[in-house]
Design a protein around this nucleic acid. Structure first.
Lengths: 337, 337
DNA sequence: ATGAAAGCGCTAACAG
DNA sequence: CTGTTAGCGCTTTCAT
């Protein structure tokens, strides 16, 4: 079946193409009766207006993009699910891109988006890098950006995230309360907002308890599971921490595996807590204490925020940060003996 | 910054817009020097060709869609990751849609795709339903479809999936080998290919071992975690199975939770094995025996297959099914005592 | 309430 | 190798 057009439809109905066109917009100037007649015929013929022709005219793509650094954990799947849900309810389509934690990939993806392909972008920042010109290009093209979960300190934009500082403080405090005195912090990348803010919460808790912050207990990791495990092993052997606070789930999982190999008992010799959206944290052995972010809600909130900007492009909003509450779930991995 | 067009660029360079256009296609007829000059200027001005204008002309969207039923487990995130990777390497963009296991949603999504928005569709079927006219519409519009993991029996199309029959047979055989005589099968939905084929493998293993297939040991589940748990509890209480083969991960997780509540020991009183891509199956308590599908590879394979069709639309391929090997990982949940 | 006509930005014949 | 020209299918004034 070749493409049927608005003209074909107009001819079969004895109308002009303008009238037919109006039937598909929420147009004012059309009688309900003709509109219905047109829509019925369209349904019958399986016609729907060519997307590219209308986008070319109207300059709207009805499409947003999600750019995420990785797909390893439940957080991002849940967030995407939330975003897609909202987008679809707004009749928007959702493009997905995974950078694999590479800023270069992020930049190249973003550049492929400035030709009108999307009306807005939801992004969770990938890694470090000081050059955010790719994002600036987007802004210059009037494509609004909303960050979620991870952003860049030196790029000012809208940001929806968890109350990470407070959650991190409480998680660390919890380790202290359960007897830890030598707590290590595993950071995904201290140059990314998420790594830094969570570390600030960790530092605050130490300070509150008169514990000295020690650089040697901070492990800045890479995008390589094998290297990370070696580094964690090294950390455990060298500095014998009695508690570990991991800023992301996969670092906690690596810790569990290393502990198993090294014969370090959790929680007896080492207490562990981490950020995670794992819904089976309670089924792990030992059950894992987690800071659980409201991933699904965060996706929805970020998307809603983006659509609010899209709906009122005039209302030039200030840079705005929305914090959502995470919940702390204490289980066996950090249990006091 | 307002849109800069190919004409503006042509004027600044003292060229015609066709020449400029050619610089952006992989066009033959243009001198390397002019091409370079154009591309340089474009870079300088931050210009890239308007997507909708070219799609309108060329009838190509450089976009594919992924439609999946749910986002609950690692299988789909991994598959998507694979798809997106291949798509991006082909300079394609990837739209994502989640149906939440609803065929109605699937139909409405598919209908929003026939206006040229996508060049092809990768889909994992949602639920049952005999009416696949929405998919037929896609075919009528010359949009190729490739199924992955889950398809419809009565809709003939390309299909990339695991060797589910054989894996299921082996998984069930494994339970028999470890002493099970009364094995229940938890099916996601027996009307979907995935549920049926996996059940066939299960039946074959029973048959091979002279064990009677019993309808009462088959639990057809719903899209509702709470109801499923109640049904599993009921199954366990009523029929006291000594082994359970779950066709999807979430049913196995529900089983573990029910067993915990009911004081049924795994593997002592009940052995469990399931399809799952969980990378921490070994960290669960008890560690979970799984049939692990090559999710990432499956995503890549399905995408490659779609692009092969897209590259050679003339080569009208026969309906074709590609099977990828799954691996069986036996751990404590199905251990012989 | 409907129709006529101009043109969105680009591509691809065709001509040179 | 480059330029001219005619649309792709739709939306949107401006008439009527």
């Amino acid at each position: 079946m070749s493409q049927i057009t608005i003209v074909d439809l107009a001819e079969t109905l004895g109308l002009s193409k303008s009238t037919v066109s109006r039937a598909f917009r929420d147009s004012s100037d059309i009688s309900p009766k003709t509109k219905e007649r047109i829509l019925a015929k369209a349904e019958e013929l399986g016609f729907s207006p060519n997307l590219y022709a209308s986008s070319l005219r109207g300059n709207r793509s009805q499409t947003i993009a999600i750019i995420i650094p990785e797909f390893g954990n439940k957080f991002f799947s849940q967030a995407i699910k939330g975003i897609e849900l909202i987008a679809r309810s707004k009749k928007y389509h959702t493009l997905i891109y995974v950078t694999d934690n590479s800023v270069q990939n992020e930049a190249s993806i973003v550049r492929s988006l400035v030709n009108g392909r999307v009306d807005g972008v939801l992004i969770s920042a990938s890694g470090e890098g000081k050059d955010h010109s790719h994002l600036q290009t987007l802004v210059d093209h009037d494509v609004p950006i909303v960050f979620f979960d991870r952003s860049y300190d030196d790029f000012h934009g809208h940001f929806v995230t968890g109350n990470d500082f407070e959650s991190s403080r409480l998680a660390t405090q919890h380790l202290v309360d359960n007897g830890c005195k030598n707590i290590a912090y595993l950071v995904i990348n201290r140059k990314v907002s998420i790594g830094k803010i969570r570390m600030d919460g960790y530092r605050k808790a130490l300070e509150d308890n008169g514990i000295l912050f020690q650089e040697k207990l901070i492990l800045d990791t890479e995008n390589d599971e094998v290297k990370n495990r070696a580094a964690i092993r090294n950390l455990i052997q060298q500095h014998k921490p009695d508690g570990i606070f991991a800023s992301v789930e996969r670092l906690a999982i690596s810790t569990i595996r290393v502990a198993q190999q090294e014969g370090v008992q959790i929680p007896e010799n080492l207490k562990l807590i981490c950020f995670s959206c794992l819904d089976i944290a309670d089924l792990l052995s030992p059950s894992l204490s987690v800071v659980k972010q409201p991933a699904f809600a965060m996706g929805k909130e970020a998307a809603n925020f983006l659509f609010r900007i899209l709906d009122k492009p005039t209302e030039l909003r200030q840079q705005e940060t929305t914090l959502l509450q995470s919940s702390l779930i204490f289980q066996d991995s950090s249990r006091k003996l």
